[in-house]
């Protein structure tokens, strides 16, 4: 044994207070089944963009409804009702329907409870009613300040309702490795090194050939005289993911 292996949980518990936690926008949740859910929090900039899109949509709706004002008393009443409904219930309606207003959807955002479940009527209504507070003193000054200060980019409405605005997970294709003859790594690899090699293989399609070669040479895993270090790394990735060829 080169090093006695300490109990993993204890090493984690001991190291946790001392270790620097990398600054990140991820929130990790663990379900009772032990499945880890990652929420990618959305900050003020994408949310402001989403708000602007929603604002444009609402303004468009007002413009469409504006001719009602020509109907004098009744028309004005209807217009005011529409204003009320659009201002207060537009976000609630869309959040309950699909978890995001059209602006948020365009920005790839969605509203969820703090535990990652889809937002419910109570939380949605609460967070949108509290927009009135976040709007103070003008143009969401309080809300912006809260978002800048809060760890999870929450405005006051989110804090009260226990909700988060997160980047939506797009259900893309599962990552696949480029096929290559599996190659045994020259030395046993650490977890991080293995993950890096797998990520390299998965993302190698997005990298230029020169950069692939450069990275593979940097890894130091390809043989010194190998003319295709990137290929060797792909082989090691196939080895890691599928094991030895039969």
């Amino acid at each position: 044994m080169q090093e006695p292996a300490p109990d993993a949980t204890h090493a984690a518990a001991d190291a946790a207070p001392k270790a620097r936690v990398a600054i990140d926008t991820l929130r990790r949740l663990e379900t009772p089944e032990g499945i880890e859910i990652l929420l990618r929090l959305a900050g003020p900039v994408p949310r402001a963009a989403a708000f602007s899109i929603d604002l444009l949509i609402r303004v468009g709706a007002y413009l469409v409804l504006l001719p009602l004002a020509a109907l004098a008393g009744v028309g004005l009443g209807l217009l005011l009702l529409a204003l009320f409904v659009l201002e207060w219930l537009y976000p609630v309606f869309f959040e309950l329907r699909s978890g995001a207003t059209p602006g948020k959807r365009a920005m790839g955002l969605t509203v969820v409870h703090a535990d990652g479940t889809p937002v419910g009527p109570a939380a949605s209504l609460l967070r949108n009613l509290l927009r009135a507070v976040d709007f103070l003193p003008v143009l969401y000054g309080v809300g912006l300040t809260a978002m800048l200060v809060d760890q999870d980019f929450r405005r006051l409405g989110d804090l009260a309702a226990g909700t988060l605005v997160v980047h939506r997970e797009d259900a893309g294709l599962p990552p696949s490795l480029p096929a290559h003859r599996p190659l045994a790594p020259p030395a046993p690899l650490g977890l991080e090194a293995q993950q890096a090699i797998l990520a390299f293989a998965e993302r190698s399609g997005e990298l230029s050939a020169a950069r692939r070669t450069e990275l593979a040479a940097l890894s130091g895993l390809a043989a010194a005289g190998d003319r295709d270090p990137a290929g060797a790394l792909l082989g090691i990735a196939n080895w890691i993911s599928r094991g030895k060829p039969d």
């Binding site: 991080e192 890894s219 130091g220």
Partner: peptide, 15 residues
């Protein structure tokens, strides 16, 4: 995204 800079760091770290 373009240069897999995180992988470069990971490889360097491993080395």
């Amino acid at each position: 995204r373009l240069e897999a800079w995180d992988l470069e760091l990971a490889f360097r770290r491993a080395r």
